[in-house]
Design a protein around this nucleic acid. Structure first.
Length: 509
RNA sequence: GGGCCCGUAGCUCAGCGGCAGAGCAGCGGACUUUUAAUCCGAUGGUCGUGGGUUCGAAUCCCACCGGGCCCCCCA
């Protein structure tokens, strides 16, 4: 990509370091050493090499992370993903010419080495290097070897440096991979088929959230990025699928916060002919199995709280909860107008007229009630106002057949007996549409295609959804949800910072 | 979007109205079992950006940019 020698920024320490490394690079080439060879054959992971007995020949490769030069003997620390090991280079073993080459290496370079294992008198397992090869010359210095990289902004903007200076950070992503693998394994084992549905939609549905807008050039048409997987999945159920799931990236145009991402992986599954009690049993088993297999235990802690995922989990009644924790009997407040003064009395400034009854209930719930629900539990019997896609409870039509999984005061799973009455669904969309027109940007849009599909008939179906990241955040005791993703969203960096200028110079050269 | 705090060398940090500092890394040198190796020497700055106050600003004030925490909001 870069065509010639990059131009140097005139006045920075970074530029000097880089110039010195470029000179070493040039020198290597003059000596006939390829600083970027294609391969290093027959390498073994350092972690494996460390298991061998002293005297064994090993062949390992990795990044140089520390140098200790002592005249005719040089110690270094070499690291790969499996671990690190000390190297010793000796002038009398390598010969003066090869030993001189070490001067052209820096911390940060990748090298491959061959040598024999021994233990130093201080007990450190070490490879005495017989041969070495440059695998990649690095041009920029690594973060400080002792303090590492602590600036939170740099850590999030330059994730590669975070992983280099703090290899433990990689474990989160490895854990996530295992977690997702275990989720798939469980659902496949239950006969669920993985499907893939479009992220570009004309009408984003299935959740209450503000969507991102994008544009298709050839069609000259705006599309939305999906905010959930739900409506496409239900159309598949209409089509005859009985057990489907997807782990799909969804996008929500909302603020940044410790519990929120702008894009995240949503797991949803739909299960035809299953009712809410069956769903509940499955979800309990699902969580317990996946957690046990990923973490080896069902007892985890989040912050101050000890969480126990051992089934069965308690079941909490939504309306009863309002009576107990807030002293509100929701049956007494059938309209938004009657509920509004109650919300205002609870000191909820966002409660304003124009909001629907459902939003008011949701606000009271999220502000006053949910923070008190710590242990894993099912929240059931939600009012119909806050669940426009769930089936009504035949015994009490103002409630729906829904279950939410709550962990540490947060929603970590949401299941429904899905609404399959096309006329009821149309009426609820129309109510949402009315709220939308009244200014609620998170109210759902009416999706005519979906309604038409429902008119062909969807069998009774249970559905469930959970954010992989939110779930993992609570399981791994992470203070912020961005801690469980590789590259969380950042604002564009200011172009005027010195670091940025240096970056720009090297790109433009 | 609101409140509080932060931004000084590639990295980690001092300095908080009077010459821009240290450690690590880098450069030169000594050193063949070190462990953040050690020792000697030379070097390194748009003090986030812009404006203002002042004889004088990294330091005080204002705005902006970026970040962190707490509210708020969508799993």
């Amino acid at each position: 990509m870069s065509r010639q020698q990059p131009k140097e920024p005139s006045t920075s320490r970074l530029a000097e370091v880089r110039a010195a490394r470029l000179q070493k690079l040039q020198r290597l080439r003059e000596l006939g050493v390829d600083p970027y060879p294609a391969t290093f054959e027959a390498r073994q992971p350092i972690g494996e090499a460390r298991e061998k007995a002293p005297g064994t020949e090993v062949r390992v490769a990795g990044r140089l992370v520390l140098w200790r030069r002592h005249g005719g003997s040089t110690f270094a620390t070499l690291r790969d993903q499996s671990g690190q090991v000390q190297l010793q280079f000796r002038r009398d073993a390598l010969g003066p010419d090869r030993y001189e080459l070490l001067k052209l290496l820096d911390v940060g370079d990748f090298i491959g080495i061959e040598g024999s294992l021994f233990t130093t008198r201080t007990g450190e397992l070490t490879v005495e290097v017989r041969q070495f090869a440059v695998l990649t010359k690095a041009l920029r210095p690594l973060p400080e070897k002792w303090h590492g990289l602590t600036d939170p902004e740099t850590r999030v903007r330059k994730r590669h440096l975070t992983f280099i200076s703090d290899p433990g950070e990689m474990e989160m992503l490895v854990k996530r991979a295992q977690f997702v693998h275990n989720i798939r394994a469980f659902l496949e084992g239950e006969g669920f088929v993985e499907v893939a549905t479009p992220a570009l939609e004309r009408i984003p549905g299935g959740a209450e959230a503000e969507p991102f807008v994008t544009h298709h050039a050839a069609l000259d048409t705006d599309f939305y990025l999906r905010i959930s997987l739900e409506l496409a999945h239900k159309r598949l159920i209409v089509g005859g699928f009985e057990r489907i799931y997807e782990i799909g990236r969804v996008f929500r145009n909302e603020g940044l916060g410790r519990e929120y991402l702008q894009e995240f992986d949503l797991l949803e599954f739909y299960w035809a002919y299953a009712d809410l009690p069956a769903l509940k049993r499955l979800v309990e088993r699902f969580y317990a199995t996946v957690i046990q297999e990923t973490f080896g235990t069902l007892r985890l802690t989040y912050g101050e709280d000890a969480l126990d995922f051992t089934p069965p989990w308690p079941e909490t009644d939504y309306l009863e909860l309002f009576r107990q924790k807030a002293g509100i009997d929701l049956h007494q407040y059938p309209t938004a107008e009657s509920l509004l003064p109650v919300a205002r009395k609870l000191d909820i400034p966002e409660a304003v007229s124009g909001l629907g009854r459902g939003r008011l209930i949701d606000l009271i719930y999220k502000r006053v009630i949910r923070p008190t629900l710590i242990q894993p539990q099912f929240l059931v019997n939600h009012p119909v106002d806050i669940s426009p896609l769930a089936k009504r409870d035949p015994k009490d039509p103002i409630r729906v057949q829904r279950l939410q999984v709550l962990i540490a005061g947060s929603e970590v799973g949401n299941g429904f007996a899905e609404l399959n009455d096309p006329l009821d669904q149309r009426a609820r969309f129309e109510e949402q549409q009315r709220l939308r027109e009244a200014g609620d940007r998170e109210a759902q849009m009416l999706d005519e295609e979906f309604l038409e599909a429902l008119e062909y008939g969807m069998p009774p179906t249970a559905g469930f959804g959970v954010s992989i990241e939110r779930w993992l955040m609570y399981l791994t005791n992470s203070p912020a949800i961005r801690d469980v993703v590789a590259f969380p969203l950042t604002r564009p960096a200011a172009s005027s910072s010195p670091t940025e200028e240096a970056d720009k110079d090297s790109r433009e050269a």
